[in-house]
Amino acid sequence: MIQGLGTSSILAGAVIAVLWKASGKTFDNLSLIHAVLHLEQMLTTGGGWQDQVGGLMPALNIGRSEGKLPLKVTVSPIQVSKETQQTFDDHFVLVYTGKTRLARNLLQDVIRNWYGRLPQIVTNCQNLKENAEVCAKAFQEGNFEKVGDCMNIYWTQKKVMAPGCEPQLVRRMMDALLPHVYGQALAGAGGGGFMYILTKESGAVQRVKDILAGVEGTENITVHSVSLDQTGLEVTVEDDVEES
């Protein structure tokens, strides 16, 4: 499993989509988002809906839900130019930290902190929401320095929600990369898995590899270039091929 990239939710969405398609049901990605949320709770994995929004929908989006039950997720596309999309692809890098973790353990701490209703936690949740809106606007404007600022703020906020989500190795990696990036954070629940960075230099995969090679404990890391998926989840049915 690719930790931190929402693959459990994406896999669940793909399985449900295939089953619905095979049974003749009609559906859209918004239905899938809610179905996966329900499935994650049944499996006690503690997942939310953000992974489905990010992994099942095409391009850039922002998801929202009101603080009431039943929970209803809405998804709004973030309109950006093709130039902005290409620039993002050229500057966005994924780094596998080589450190595994179990997301459920970290998420349980987050839920306990929220149930405690400590003022610091409640305020932090509001700040998380506001930062997401600022980040969406920065994408629309093609302001990647501001996007990077939002990433850094988000990582600080995540550490408030889940103390211990930043291993010492990750801190050393981030410190080494700091002069070369606009922003960086661990994906998913944190604690390991993948780190994503927005570099100041385009096409910086090799540069990132060289920098991290000088950090103690990074023997198992891998560095990857990525690009925005413009399609989202699609289910196709192939016609049976007669044997010759």
Rank of each mutant, 00 (worst) to 15 (best):
Q3G: 01
G6K: 03
G6C: 01
G6L: 02
S8N: 04
I10F: 07
L11T: 11
A12I: 04
A14H: 02
A14I: 07
I16F: 00
I16V: 06
A17E: 03
A17F: 03
V18N: 07
W20T: 05
W20A: 09
K25R: 14
T26N: 12
N29C: 10
A35M: 07
V36W: 02
H38G: 00
H38M: 07
L39G: 01
L39A: 11
M42F: 10
L43H: 04
T45K: 09
D51I: 02
Q52I: 04
Q52G: 08
G55E: 03
G55M: 00
M57F: 13
P58F: 01
R64E: 12
S65N: 12
G67N: 13
G67L: 14
G67V: 09
K68G: 06
K68H: 10
T74S: 13
S76E: 13
P77T: 05
I78V: 13
K82N: 15
E83D: 13
T84K: 04
D90Y: 06
T97L: 06
T97E: 04
G98S: 02
T100V: 08
A103I: 00
L107H: 01
D109H: 14
R112L: 11
W114N: 11
R117Q: 13
L118P: 03
I121L: 02
T123K: 11
C125K: 11
C125P: 05
L128N: 10
E133C: 07
K137R: 12
K137M: 11
Q140D: 00
E141Q: 14
G142W: 00
N143D: 15
F144P: 05
V147W: 00
C150F: 00
M151N: 01
I153Y: 07
Y154C: 12
W155T: 02
K159S: 14
V160C: 07
C165L: 11
P167N: 03
Q168G: 13
V170P: 04
V170Y: 06
V170A: 08
R172D: 11
M173Y: 04
M174E: 13
M174L: 14
G183W: 00
Q184R: 09
Q184Y: 08
L186K: 09
G192N: 05
M195Q: 09
Y196N: 06
L198H: 00
S202W: 02
S202A: 15
G203K: 03
A204G: 03
Q206M: 08
R207Q: 15
V208P: 02
L212R: 03
V215H: 05
V215P: 05
E216D: 14
E216G: 04
G217C: 06
T218W: 02
I221K: 02
I221R: 04
T222C: 09
T222G: 11
V223E: 07
V223P: 03
S225N: 09
S227H: 13
D229S: 07
D229A: 05
Q230T: 14
T231L: 12
T231A: 10
L233W: 04
V235F: 02
V237L: 15
D240W: 12
V241M: 10
E243F: 12
S244A: 15
